[in-house]
Amino acid sequence: MRRGVSFEIPNEYGSLLGNVLKPIDITVFAWQIGSGESYRVENGQLKELFPADKDTIGGAELKRLLEDHTYYMIFADLKAYQNGEFSTIDTYEEFIESQCELVLLVVDCSYVTIYCKNKKGLELLHDHAIDCGFENVEYITDENDTRTGLTV
């Protein structure tokens, strides 16, 4: 069974996550912000991409951050919920049992992993990654998933 998709994005400044998530409507979700390190360029200076005093963000605000800014992702941990019932998710099994619909992880600037409960959405994300020319695009399945935790 397909659990998610993984691929590599360029290690550069840009709006890459906005592009990665284009196939889905991220505005319908409330997003939990996990640990990470990401910076946006504002007036020639680097600022935290995600507000340090917030651990959640609305979908519309996240869309603006990811599509309307130039930023550099080192690590990111974002989890999408439709009903806003946030929970701690450390494993794939906890993800399946939770109200979380999508987990997006970025590690070492380039390595993207997305777990998605919606199978059509997963296919769209996979095909879009290929269309964007991202490298090493592959489905994560029950057989090849080596990740022990869903955090960065």
Rank of each mutant, 00 (worst) to 15 (best):
Y13Q: 05
S15V: 03
S15P: 03
S15A: 15
L16E: 09
L16T: 10
G18L: 09
N19F: 08
V20F: 07
V20R: 05
L21V: 08
K22F: 14
P23Y: 05
I24K: 08
I24V: 14
D25A: 10
D25P: 01
D25N: 15
I26Q: 12
I26E: 09
T27Y: 05
T27L: 06
V28Q: 14
F29D: 08
F29K: 05
F29M: 08
F29P: 05
F29S: 11
W31V: 08
W31D: 09
Q32K: 13
Q32W: 02
I33R: 02
G34D: 09
S35W: 03
E37C: 13
S38R: 01
Y39W: 11
Y39N: 06
Y39M: 05
Y39A: 07
R40C: 13
V41D: 12
V41M: 12
E42M: 04
E42T: 00
E42A: 10
N43R: 06
G44R: 00
G44C: 04
Q45W: 10
L46P: 02
L46H: 05
K47H: 11
K47L: 12
K47W: 09
K47A: 13
K47C: 10
E48H: 10
E48C: 06
E48Y: 07
L49E: 06
F50W: 03
F50Y: 11
F50K: 03
P51A: 08
P51E: 06
P51N: 07
A52M: 04
A52G: 06
A52L: 09
D53R: 01
D53L: 01
K54H: 07
K54P: 01
K54L: 13
D55N: 10
T56V: 13
I57D: 09
G59H: 04
G59Y: 02
E61V: 09
E61T: 06
L62S: 08
K63H: 15
L66D: 08
E67V: 12
D68H: 13
D68C: 12
D68S: 15
T70S: 13
Y71P: 08
Y72A: 08
Y72L: 13
M73V: 13
M73F: 02
I74M: 05
I74A: 12
F75W: 14
F75M: 11
A76W: 01
D77F: 00
L78F: 01
L78G: 08
L78I: 02
K79W: 06
K79D: 06
Y81C: 07
Q82K: 15
N83M: 00
N83D: 15
E85H: 13
F86V: 04
F86G: 04
S87A: 15
T88A: 11
T88P: 00
I89Q: 07
D90V: 08
D90Q: 08
D90S: 14
D90C: 07
T91S: 15
T91R: 07
T91E: 03
T91C: 12
